[in-house]
Design a protein around this nucleic acid. Sequence first.
DNA 1: TAGATTGTTAATCGATTAACAATC
DNA 2: TAGATTGTTAATCGATTAACAATC
Lengths: 239, 239
Amino acid sequence: MNNDELEIIGDIHQNLGTGDNASSPRAYVSPAVIKRLPRYFRYLRELIRNGKMRISSGELSKIMNVTASQIRQDLNCFGGFGQQGYGYNVKYLYAKISEILGVNCNFRAIIVGAGNLGRALVRNPMFTKRGVSTVAMFDIDENLIGGTVAGVTVHSMDELENFCKENSIDIAVLTLPKECAQDTTEKLVRAGVCGIWNFTGKELEMNREDIKVVNVHLGDSLMTLCYELNLRREKKEDN
Amino acid sequence: MNNDELEIIGDIHQNLGTGDNASSPRAYVSPAVIKRLPRYFRYLRELIRNGKMRISSGELSKIMNVTASQIRQDLNCFGGFGQQGYGYNVKYLYAKISEILGVNCNFRAIIVGAGNLGRALVRNPMFTKRGVSTVAMFDIDENLIGGTVAGVTVHSMDELENFCKENSIDIAVLTLPKECAQDTTEKLVRAGVCGIWNFTGKELEMNREDIKVVNVHLGDSLMTLCYELNLRREKKEDN
DNA sequence: TAGATTGTTAATCGATTAACAATC
DNA sequence: TAGATTGTTAATCGATTAACAATC
């Protein structure tokens, strides 16, 4: 089974499990749980690829290096996906988590900024694997406008607002200079974009409940690595 | 004051503050605190750039959207950097946090994989801003080997182990296909690399205390955004 | 000195783990 | 039925917030 097939598993139904709350209004789920969901998604995909049909929380906990208790608690935030005495049906669980994560929503994204990072991201299979289509890129550089990257056309920034309005864009990936981040975001929101994936390093001010901003600070990640290296170095020197 | 000057502030001393524990063996600091440090680093840099000389935890808390209590607790994990009745000296605090985060350690990094992401990262000012030098790239593609990206030479993967040994490399940035991630990591560790910044999407098995792996899963970040969009969509439909 | 604000302890809150009854 | 494993409640652990004495 290849990657592409894995994306499309979608709604597999089973007549086991203690009930499926997926369509009822969802109760509050803590950010800690939400942040773990994509990891389950990845591991379950891997299990399917390896032909694994069923798995218990105990077995999965060993593979993922977490407690079985945590897995059961996490999954039960969204409904009873398992069966006592049996465990979890891998494909079914994968389909459910995909559904929760919106993999089948067909979200439409644009990349704003066709610089190095923008071009690297649009070429990354990540979007396709998660059911997000990249429909356009935008830049101010005349040399890039009109060209394509990985089959995606680069448009002028002047067209940004109209394009989003006309093409019902859900997500904007910001890979432009941080100075333009706030202004551009306001334009995007006016044009109906409700998800901002922000790589600019500028933390965006956003007080609207209906808009979600996810900031990616690669530099912060690098610094936590440096912190750990520095700590180990200091410990060594102390001995 | 420009970016480059900001990097080098280093050890500014002041005769206020209740004592400086930076050189004594550091007590355990929780991961939650460590993950917040780079954010302080960024905000303090911005404050310096704006000419701000001193700041209280209350004022900083408003800017950063956290509690003043948390700021004081976080900073006190590393020593008393403030002064009662006065607050914190911005430059001094920035210097201290830089020190804790190893900004002045002059860590040496290589990028393994000169594909789209590797090339985008090496061109990013992030490394320089955090005192990490990018000394080489590696790839298997004959067309890339011998060339340079942002002034950094691309070497053959065959030279990887020897190069690291001879050039005392601290950090390897992994931007190669996930299939090679584990093997390459083992090579790197043999060659003395102690920090792995892993963009491959493969979670590396590493049981050595002296090696630190930081996994970056951009896809996971995208999925939490999709989760939120999906959630808002469902809520809308329920109303 | 009076005012301000830290450093630090105590109280609260939330998240994780353990335990076990329910049940397949 | 007996065994296995979930779903869920209760116990523990850790992180955040509040409060305030110390002190600049």
